[in-house]
Design a protein around this nucleic acid. Structure first.
Length: 870
RNA sequence: GGGGAAUUAGCUCAUCUGGUAGAGCGUUUGGUUCGCAAUCAAAAGGUAACGGGUUCGAGUCCCGUAUUCUCCA
């Protein structure tokens, strides 16, 4: 039996023998594509070739690609694990032709590989072809059908509709008919009962698609019409896990050697066994699937977080924890313990797992613990809701409460239901669904973005010249309008540009486009599918005119300082802390820089100081930039340049070297380190488990920062009469201050006690209550203290009335002993009534209330109002 | 991109409609104990995220900013 590893290798070997270049898997996490968060198909890394943004590097390539899908037919997150064939992460084997071979070769080789190389039974294979579409004025894909007819009998070639057999990249862009290969894995007697062709594309878990061959021959325009592509492409994708299942004679992907070791590992940790009980099996499949997804995301640089792609990863992790919690009885973090077994099965093919093992473990463990805390909070809130509901004599909690728990506090509905059931209660499902619907509508309305068609003025590719010059003559190739909820702007592509587009953490350039008649402001530059897009608020009146593009040079210089500073800090960190330090993200702006890196403990002040000193020493050395463009990646690595995990590099890379610091980098840098002036680290903090962040400034901004510090220090010193030892002076002052505070407090207490005794001895006895009056100028806090002191000293039949003033403002304070309150008296009401006399209002509790006002002259009247009550 | 929520002692969180800022854990000191664990007692510890506003009075209400959590896309 072929192992998964052998199968993976046989695929690439086969296509290499057909003249294909074998390329590595791109990272699973996608950058620089606003429409996509994760790699969801093998073709993603070639998207810019299909879009015509960059030329092809090879005519034929093949690879095995890590993919992640959380929605779609066989990848709906909530479905994964319930059955035996849904997944989030999977590997896709693929071969491509970029304007090279087409249907004939693609289909013949697919057949050759499956039948001749892998020895799959041809009687079990079926092919689907596009049946045509009236809407698009397209006929049946007879071309493909005729090629298939050489290998398959007629009844094994099946027509498919637009939904199944016409592939589109998005609403617009390259598309074309596709032809899928399906395999029937059922037993002989079942196959005898119902022929396989009746079950193709019918969601039967044993009759499944294994390979899709897409023939890209059209371009879909924004008005929905199709035009023929000048160069036709082939894009294929085969589900690796499914292929393993077929070849290993299993009924489920989870039964293959891809998943079995992981399932076994889960069993050992949780004390259960796969294949014994339905619910346990579901939970185990969920965990087995999700641990792969989470681990690979982290190695690709995508940590769980609270937004975007990171949040998707967090949700997947939490789903795994939840299943472990509910069905496997796991009450503490356990997922991270699966990493060794994952490495055992996949570490060979994906060495990044081994390299980053401890980081992955740490991140997962921390996330698990955070979620368990979220669950505890949820349980506490749910307890509250249950108590309130019971108090109202009901057993059904409102759907709104259930939704709030879910929406605001992240407490899963199924857990809510579980806990309610244990307490003999339910939740109003319909109401919950309504609330969910509302939420979805809100999001849909807000998310609507209208993207206009590109207006093409000239053909051609965009060239970036910004490494060498910051101003040049340009022409507009194409532009389009983007309309969002509250804003409207234009994207412009130039034939050449000095503007650096946001990438690798460095923000995009700003500047202007100037023609003879007008000046247009460029507010940002972004990268979309490898294309530099200039963002402008308004279009030039004559877009076909010639322009001069000018980058905002002062801003660019500051960015360059910060970017080079980032490299120096990276180098210094590795020197001081060790080579386990790896970049986990960075943000380079004109104002400051942020640098995230893997490190397992707080960087001490001394270490930070050392890092800073080392980096600044390199600045003073005024090391000249050594820049190597178009270095083959292998050569760059051999030179010892630092590359990032999870970063997609081309075959030729740019190496940035300042003395010993050497990194693969596309950013803009200073010509020599002296330009930076100096670097100052502002802060060090944790961003997530195992990842620390430093923030720093350099260049003019560092100077500004130091100036501010110095000004503050000077002000401080002058406050302390320029004493030589400022720290000691401040410390002394603080000590004195706290001693005096204590003294004052003591004096106040003594005063309060004296006041209390005096007032008690002056108490008026009226109709059986002791009436105690305080008048004069007192702070509100003292009056309050006195009132409470007296209340303690005179436990019954006490009425305290304070009619005092402070800073020209009148105040009324009233305290009543408990027996009077029990007898129906209410200080709040009384005080409110009296407060009218001083043009104010008040309130408090029945036994103690305060009021304030604006009219000091009414104080006497207000007191009389109160005294007349007794 | 949008919605909801949170931010109070070192930590986890209370503070019902605006009216005395509190608990548990932890810390320090002292007691019991040969010592540890344990336990009892006391004390210290607060810019209620930040900035405005409304009010006689704001942790509490309103607006803005930041950070975090969470859901939808």
């Amino acid at each position: 039996m072929l192992t998964a590893k052998e199968i993976r290798k046989s695929f690439t070997d086969f296509f290499a023998s057909k003249g294909h270049t074998i390329v590595p898997s791109a990272p699973m996490v996608v950058k620089n594509d606003p429409t996509l968060m994760f790699t969801n198909a093998g073709m993603n890394q070639f998207k810019d070739i299909f879009l015509g943004n960059v030329p092809r590097k090879y005519p034929r390539v093949a690879d095995s690609q890590k993919c992640l899908r959380v929605s779609g037919k066989h990848n709906d997150l909530e479905e994964v694990g319930l059955d035996t064939y849904h997944h989030t992460m999977f590997e896709m084997l693929g071969n491509w032709s970029f304007g090279d071979y087409f249907k004939k070769e693609a289909i013949s080789w697919a057949w050759e590989y499956l039948v001749d190389v892998l020895k799959l039974d041809p009687k079990r294979l079926y092919a689907t072809v596009f049946e045509g579409s009236e809407e698009d004025k397209l006929g049946r894909d007879d071309e493909a059908a005729e090629i298939w007819a050489q290998f398959l009998p007629k009844n094994h070639i099946i027509n498919g509709n637009k939904h199944d057999n016409f592939w589109e990249m998005g609403d617009t862009g390259p598309c074309g008919p596709c032809s899928e290969i399906h395999i029937d894995l059922r037993d002989d007697d079942e196959r005898a009962k119902i022929p396989g062709e009746a079950l193709v594309n019918k969601d039967n878990p044993q009759v499944i698609e294994i390979w899709n061959n897409v023939f890209m021959q059209f371009n879909r325009k924004a008005d929905g019409s199709l035009e023929s592509l000048p160069a036709k492409h082939v894009d294929t994708g085969m589900g690796f896990e499914r292929l393993c299942m077929a070849l290993q004679g299993k009924k489920s992907n989870y039964d293959t050697d891809v998943f079995q070791p992981i399932l076994k590992g889960i069993g050992e940790i949780c004390g259960c066994e796969y294949g014994k009980k339905r619910e346990t099996d579901i939970a185990m499949r969920v965990i087995a699937d999700h641990i792969r997804t989470i681990s690979f995301s982290i190695t690709d640089g995508q940590l769980p977080s609270n937004a975007k792609a990171g949040y998707v990863i967090r949700r997947i992790l939490r789903r795994a924890v939840r299943y472990g919690y509910t069905f496997l009885g796991q009450r503490s973090a356990f997922l991270y313990k699966l990493l060794p077994v994952l490495i055992e099965t996949m570490g060979d093919a994906y060495p990044e797992l081994i390299a980053q093992k401890s980081l992955v473990e740490k991140v997962i463990k921390e996330e698990e613990e955070a979620f368990l805390r979220t669950l505890e909070t949820g349980i506490r809130l749910l307890d509250k809701v249950m108590a309130e509901t019971k108090a109202n004599g009901k057993t059904e909690i409102s759907g709104k409460d259930g939704f709030t728990l879910y929406d605001t506090f992240g407490f899963p509905l199924d857990l809510t239901e579980l806990i309610l059931r244990e307490n003999g209660m339910t939740v109003n499902q319909e109401e919950f669904n309504q609330e969910m619907q509302k939420q979805k509508e809100r999001a849909r309305n807000a998310a609507s973005v209208e993207t206009g068609d590109w207006v093409q003025l000239q053909e051609g590719e965009s060239e970036f010249v910004g490494y060498d010059i910051l101003s040049c003559d340009v022409e507009i190739l194409r532009y389009r309008k983007i309309k969002q909820k509250n804003s409207e702007f234009y994207q412009i592509v130039l034939n050449r540009t000095p503007f650096y587009a946001e990438m690798g953490g460095q923000v995009g350039d700003t500047g202007i486009l100037k023609s003879d008649d007008e000046t247009i402001e460029v507010i940002d530059t972004k990268k979309e599918n490898n294309l530099s897009v200039h963002i402008v608020k308004k279009l030039p009146a004559n877009p076909s005119a010639s322009f001069v593009a000018e980058v905002n040079t002062a801003r660019r210089q500051q960015i360059a300082c910060n970017h080079t500073a980032t490299h120096l800090l990276d180098y210094a960190l590795r020197q001081v802390l060790g080579t386990h330090v790896e970049q986990k993200g960075s943000f380079v702006a004109p104002e400051a820089l942020r640098f995230d890196f893997s490190h397992f403990q707080k960087v001490s002040d001394e270490e930070l100081r050392k890092v800073e000193q080392l980096a600044n020493a390199m600045v003073r050395e005024n090391i000249a930039l050594e820049e190597h463009r178009n270095v083959p990646i292998e050569e760059a690595r051999a030179m010892g340049a630092i590359a990032l995990f999870g970063e997609k590099y081309g075959d030729a890379v740019r190496v940035i070297k300042y003395g010993p610091s050497m990194e693969l980098c596309g950013g803009t840098h200073v010509k020599s380190t002296g330009e930076i002036g100096f670097i100052r680290i502002l802060s060090e903090a944790s961003v997530s488990a195992g990842v620390r962040r430093i923030e720093a400034v350099s260049g003019a901004k560092a100077e500004e920062f130091v100036d501010m510090q110095q000004d503050m220090l000077r002000d401080l010193k002058s406050l302390f009469n320029n004493v030589p030892n400022l720290v000691q002076a401040i410390k002394k002052s603080l000590d004195e201050n706290s001693a005096m505070k204590k003294q004052v407090e003591q004096f106040v207490q003594e005063k309060v006690v004296i006041l209390r005794d005096k007032l008690i001895s002056n108490a008026i006895d009226r109709n059986g209550v002791k009436l105690i009056i305080l008048k004069g100028d007192f702070e509100a806090d003292i009056v309050k203290s006195v009132a409470f002191q007296i209340r303690n000293a005179v436990p019954s039949s006490l009425v305290f009335i304070g009619a005092t003033q402070n800073m020209g403002k009148p105040a009324i304070t009233m305290a009543l002993s408990d027996d009077l309150v029990a007898g129906g008296m209410n200080a709040t009401q009384l005080v409110r009534e009296a407060a009218k006399e001083i043009k104010g209002g008040g309130g408090g509790q029945p036994f103690f209330a305060q009021a304030g006002g604006k009219d000091v002259d009414g104080l006497e009247r207000a007191m009389n109002v109160l005294m007349n009550k007794f």
